[in-house]
């Protein structure tokens, strides 16, 4: 699968408190979540994002709380993927579980600027920065994670396990 979009760039240690502040953690509705996504980092984030855009971040993206509303809000606002130098553990598994594509590529994060166009070949292990004309490789997902991603998240895996798929 190929994902395409323009880049929104952020720094390191972007924690879940700024992605989805505690005061909004009671929300479960996608539209509401989208409105407050990244609010404490950039109050206009949800207005700036076009469907398909890609977040490119530095190290330890998503550190802090286990609140799933953090990746959910990113998905809800229309972000198609997050590329970072590295991810915090719980954010990483939450993103996989809810079907938000995420990729670790320090090289891509270093070379990419805000507004660049990216093309991500999800299972081909390649990110192309179209603006800069550069290619970056990322490590393929382990087979188990690929299965979950293929099924669009953990839901598919659960239903199959329960014989409901």
């Amino acid at each position: 699968m190929i994902l395409k979009g323009s880049v929104y760039k952020t720094g390191e240690n972007i924690n879940t408190d700024v992605i989805m502040p505690g005061r909004w953690c009671h929300l479960t509705d996608d539209k509401e979540l989208a409105k407050h996504c990244m609010e404490d980092l950039d109050i206009d984030f949800h207005k700036k994002i076009k469907v398909g855009d890609i977040i490119v971040a530095d190290d330890n993206f998503g550190c802090g709380s286990s609140r799933e509303v953090a990746p959910l809000s990113i998905k809800a606002v229309g972000i198609s993927a997050v590329v970072a130098k590295s991810f915090a553990r719980i954010f990483y598994r939450n993103a996989i579980n809810i079907g938000l594509p995420i990729f670790e590529s320090p090289e891509c994060a270093d070379a990419t600027e805000a507004g660049d166009r990216l093309e991500i070949d999800m299972f081909g292990g390649k990110i192309k920065n179209i603006t800069k004309g550069k290619d970056f490789a990322f490590a393929p997902f382990p087979p188990f994670m690929k299965t979950i991603i293929d099924k669009g998240g953990l839901k598919g895996w659960v239903l199959e396990k329960l014989g409901k798929a």
Partner: peptide
Amino acid sequence: TGVGSTDIACAWATGDIW
């Protein structure tokens, strides 16, 4: 260990976790 809500739903439904 801390996990997200989808993981919890999975554990409640199947008894298992990855």
